[in-house]
Design a binder for these strands. Structure first.
Lengths: 159, 159
DNA sequence: ACTGGAAGCATGAAATATCATGCAATGATC
DNA sequence: GATCATTGCATGATATTTCATGCTTCCAGT
């Protein structure tokens, strides 16, 4: 039945597996989007936009970071992050202080309110992650985490 | 030196591993972003915006899809996709035809030019993916792909 | 010290995205 | 087969994002 020498239209050839559903960049983007969406609903329910939550998480990890360092971590472009920080500042979640070592730099610090919110959201993020992983066969989640850490490291190594 | 019964500030406690760099949603989003960025440069170099490339890839896989089906696949919201399609139509990459079975539906078809571009870009995507995977120890890439397919399936199963 | 260049952040104008809603076609219920 | 709800797509108003560029501060070389 299969005469590969005849039907080589490339598109519908016999042994082809579908491209899209196996394409790594698609799987990454799509999985990231659907996995994140659930939690992002929680984020918005707490009056935060997604990049604001990311900033809180980054500062929770290390307070007083500069805008330029925060931007890639929060997956936001610099000018966008500047504005987000300004709004968070206006709202009293963070505080901007010029770095005395280098006055070009602006370092961002959590306020008490910001820290409280960050703590709360981080706890929720942990819970959500646990719940997310629970739909997978045991161990798979950690396996995925480790692989992603590896790839992520390789990719960000070559700046 | 370490008296865990004293310094339990939760934040800087002894055995804590960093949250962010182990947080699955962060790893997914950040890895996806940096992995995609390289290829997206290629996409733009060919005069396409990222969602346009995604539409081409989706149609290459299955021509004549409806807008509503295309939107989640191309990771774009419906009204956004409508406009993107309109531009691609204006540019001659796709064609919109009302579905005779259900005249609310608009089905999108690749034009000859669109198909040629899609074929070309898919080939480049394959190449880029191979190159991307080559920075990983052999096998790791496929392992990652399989895990992502699993998680992706689980996540999209519960609509 | 002086000059050129780069780093760090801010900002205006233009491009995009989103949200709610509109409209048309279909399906379901009685 | 009239009515009401729903699906599918389009669209206007608004909000967000981006791009280029400006301004300031620092650094390197001279």
């Amino acid at each position: 039945m299969d005469h590969p020498d005849q039907t080589d239209s490339f598109e519908e050839a016999a042994g082809e597996r579908p491209f899209l559903s196996n394409y790594l960049l698609f799987l990454l983007a799509s999985t990231s989007a659907s996995a994140s969406e659930e939690f992002h609903a929680t984020v918005r329910a707490h009056g935060l936009r997604v990049p604001e939550w990311r900033v809180l998480a980054c500062l929770h990890e290390e307070d007083g970071q500069m805008v330029t360092r925060l931007a890639p971590l929060a997956l936001a472009e610099q000018s966008r992050l500047t504005r987000i920080i300004m709004q968070m500042d206006a709202r009293g979640l963070v505080e901007r202080r010029s770095d005395p070592e280098d006055r070009r730099r602006v370092r961002i610090y959590l306020t008490a309110e910001g820290r409280a919110l960050a703590d709360d959201m981080i706890a929720r993020a942990r819970d959500h992650e646990a719940e997310l992983l629970s739909v997978l066969p045991a161990g798979k989640g950690e396996e995925l985490r480790q692989l992603l850490k590896e790839v992520h490291a390789k990719l960000t190594a070559r700046d």
